[in-house]
Design a protein around this nucleic acid. Structure first.
Lengths: 150, 150
DNA sequence: ATGTAGTTGGAAACTATTTTCAACTGGAGT
DNA sequence: ACTCCAGTTGAAAATAGTTTCCAACTACAT
């Protein structure tokens, strides 16, 4: 089941930052570390901040927000939409995937599958529209929360 | 292209409300009217409120929020996730569909197509998870905004 | 017509996020 | 190693979207 994220990070943060004249600060390394250690598991800025505070008690939430936005811009992180009030982020592993969200316990599991090519074909035929990206979330019950017959 | 929403509302608001001991207030009729007149076009609570103010200048934004939540509960409206800070709502026509969102001008077009059955099959085979609902948004360029070759 | 459970609007509270700004710092150039 | 400064940070304030609170109001069953 967990084949997607057994991968050792090929992302060279230092290189991506310096190429753009950006600094590799301890704060950025810290957020990057949290994302890497939780690859495949979307987290809110606040959750990421909590992790960062453990190693850097002075880390500001604002910096986490700024860093996540930057990471999205340079392809290090991705925004994940789980249809909750808060935005979620995860490391950009380069592997396209979607999410199964348990409506009972909230656990999120990545799904290594996508039908976008088939949809793109249909859309190209029926609509004058060029699709460049998409976002799919699937909601339901994980094995633990599945209502059991009495 | 616009075959989905040429349909005259089969929703009896009065009936749905009274069956639950709820009142059919002018405010609820008003929001329902706005949703019906804009079927297929997702709107924010604030946009809906603006429309309501035209016929009822005393309509409160809070009431719009409450009414939309109620309408979702009783199946009159649906939440639409367009990955913007604000939540969107539209009339529940009973016709399952998704949305094409132009990243340039923001126009939203419904797509009468879905691959969820195929995905459900794959998920049932590969994950111990029961999907009950899903949400897909497709982003790209509408005909007007499509970058033209110079 | 009456009574009351349900509803409303405005204000205040709340949550997530962005902006502002003065102080700080990574790392290029010396 | 030292200097310098564009880029960065953290705290506070501002903003945006939404929810809660509550006293006044109203649809509708009787």
């Amino acid at each position: 089941m967990e084949t997607i994220f057994n991968w050792s990070s090929p992302i060279d943060l230092q290189e991506r930052l310096s190429r753009r004249g950006l600094k590799n600060t301890p704060q950025r390394k810290c957020v990057f570390g949290v994302l890497t250690r939780n690859a495949g598991k979307p987290m809110t800025p606040d959750q990421i901040h909590q992790f960062c505070l453990k190693s850097n008690p002075r880390m500001g939430l604002t910096t986490v927000y700024r860093t996540l936005e930057l990471f999205c811009d340079i392809g290090v992180a991705m925004r994940v939409h789980l249809h909750e009030p808060s935005q979620y982020y995860e490391l950009n592993t380069g592997k396209h995937h979607h999410h199964l969200v348990c409506v009972a316990c909230g656990i999120v599991e990545p799904v290594d599958m996508c039908m976008i090519d088939e949809m793109n074909d249909m859309i190209r035929d029926n609509h004058d529209f060029v699709v460049t990206s998409h976002c799919l979330s699937l909601f339901g019950y994980c094995p633990m929360c599945l209502p059991k017959p009495n």
